[in-house]
């Protein structure tokens, strides 16, 4: 078997039971740092029901809230949880020791503003200040478009590091419009009512296609992936996913 570029970690860091040793339950990692956490918890409950097994929720709950922490993710997937909910399914963007289920739902990046008269992307004049949550797929889509324009026709892209910083920049008028993951916007708007007043600019180049979201698991767990994929398919077809999404405050749709 070919070697993977996997984290090399000491065995004593893997001191809990294997998440696959008990066939009567499934352990699902949830990340409290994500805006879709509550939706993920409901979906985890439905997945366990569909698989006819008990559910063990593993709250990741890390204090460190930055960086792609692949080392801890690796430990979690080997050691603590069968699957880890809440990964945007970008082909080729993750380490090869990670595998993914089929999507549970899809959501979108949106272009939002607090300025009047901006309904469509074409309403934004060249040179307008467009904030982006840096490096995200919505940003990349916009970047690819903006860089294809003649220099005089480009927008002024303003990269911002975190969703809260980005929304604050829009609120304070430092950008004319902002590209952000819609669940982040809605989540942070719950604590900042003025953010809820922002409006969506129709911008298919940013929002389409929607981004599928699924669960990650260790790449060698092919049988588990197959079972979970079947469960997702059933829950999607019987309308359960649609119902759970509607009961949540997350702007999302079942995956197509």
């Amino acid at each position: 078997m070919a070697q993977l570029e996997e984290p090399q970690l000491p065995q004593q860091w893997f001191d809990e039971r294997s998440p696959l040793s008990d066939q009567q339950s499934i352990s699902i990692c949830l990340d409290s740092r994500l805006p879709e956490h509550d939706l993920h918890e409901r979906l985890a409950q439905e997945l366990a029901s569909a698989l006819l097994v008990d559910l063990e929720i593993v709250e990741v709950g890390r204090e460190r809230h930055v960086e792609a922490d692949y080392e801890h993710l690796y430990i979690d997937l080997i050691n603590r949880c069968s699957i880890y909910l809440g990964f945007k399914l970008y082909p080729g963007a993750y380490p090869e020791w990670l595998d993914f289920t089929r999507p549970l739902y899809q959501a979108r990046f949106v272009l939002i503003t607090n300025q009047e008269g901006l309904s469509n992307f074409g309403d934004l004049a060249p040179g307008s200040r467009v904030g982006v949550t840096q490096g995200t797929d919505g940003d990349i889509r916009f970047l690819a478009y903006n860089n294809s324009l003649p220099a005089a026709s480009r927008y002024h892209r303003l990269p911002l590091g975190q969703p809260d910083i980005a929304l604050k920049a829009l609120s304070e008028g430092r950008v004319d419009a902002l590209i952000i993951w819609e669940p982040w916007w809605q989540h942070l708007a719950q604590g900042q009512p003025e953010y809820a007043e922002f409006s969506v600019i129709n911008a298919p180049l940013v929002s389409e296609p929607a981004v599928p979201v699924g669960a990650a698991l260790y790449t060698e767990r092919t049988a588990l992936r197959s079972l979970v994929d079947q469960a997702i398919q059933i829950l999607t077809q019987d309308g359960t996913v649609q119902r759970v999404i509607e009961e949540s405050s997350v702007p999302a749709q079942p995956a197509r």
């Binding site: 792609a68 945007k88 970008y90 949550t133 995200t136 797929d137 590091g161 969703p163």
Partner: peptide
């Protein structure tokens, strides 16, 4: 280049 998560500069 691949997309990053929010805050993963």
């Amino acid at each position: 280049p691949n997309p990053l998560g929010e805050g993963e500069v």
